[in-house]
Amino acid sequence: MNILKKIQLPLGLLTLISLAVGAWYVYQAPADFQQGGAVRILYVHVPSAKMALLSYLFLTVASVLYLWKRWEGADIVAEAATAVGAAFTALTLASGAIWGKPMWGTWWAWDARLTSMLVLLIIYKGLMVLRHSLDDPVKGARATAILAIIGGVDLPIIHYSVVWWRTLHQPPSLTAAENSSVHISGPLLPPLLILSGAFILLGLYMVTVKARQIEARRRLDALEAARMHPDE
């Protein structure tokens, strides 16, 4: 975990700089002719949705590594990625709802992407609860890693089933509104790209912070367990 200590400060500074540049571009960006200023919501919503999925990918890779090589570090990173992914998923859902109110007229529509995101949030929550409801931490870590991999395989199936379901059922007006409004191009693109990059850095930084916290907690738990049962 020494590497986390080393990269944390530069990563944090880089994140702050890129977020500031992104914010400046958002401030300068022209309003979209179709959705006006509401496009500024997408500058948060779209990168956040990307991070919600990217965190899961990261989590799956860490889980595979943990099961295969049994590195405790991989498990700590997986636990950290779960918390970070859940935070981004929650932000995606909240910003999607706030965007939907002026654009669709409702806070929530059972649109394919929002529905998959909601399911993703429940899966993240399930992973967190599973880990802490087993008494043996090694068993908890292994069960969580297996569930994370299963969820990783299931996510594409969930996504496609929801897409099929919604495209066969959706009222055409909603589909049209959705297609016209999520499309971003031209001068609106630079802030989106910069903020996407900044969010990736932010996600990595959050993983390092959370991972160090988890590592400290585990060390403390181990010390306390040793103090309680000195003979073992």
Binding site: G36, R40, V44, S48, I98
Partner: peptide, 15 residues
């Protein structure tokens, strides 16, 4: 454009 300001502000605050 100003119609959207409260929504946009809410999202950035929330983020």
């Amino acid at each position: 454009m100003s119609d959207y300001t409260p929504y946009v502000t809410a999202v950035y605050v929330l983020a």
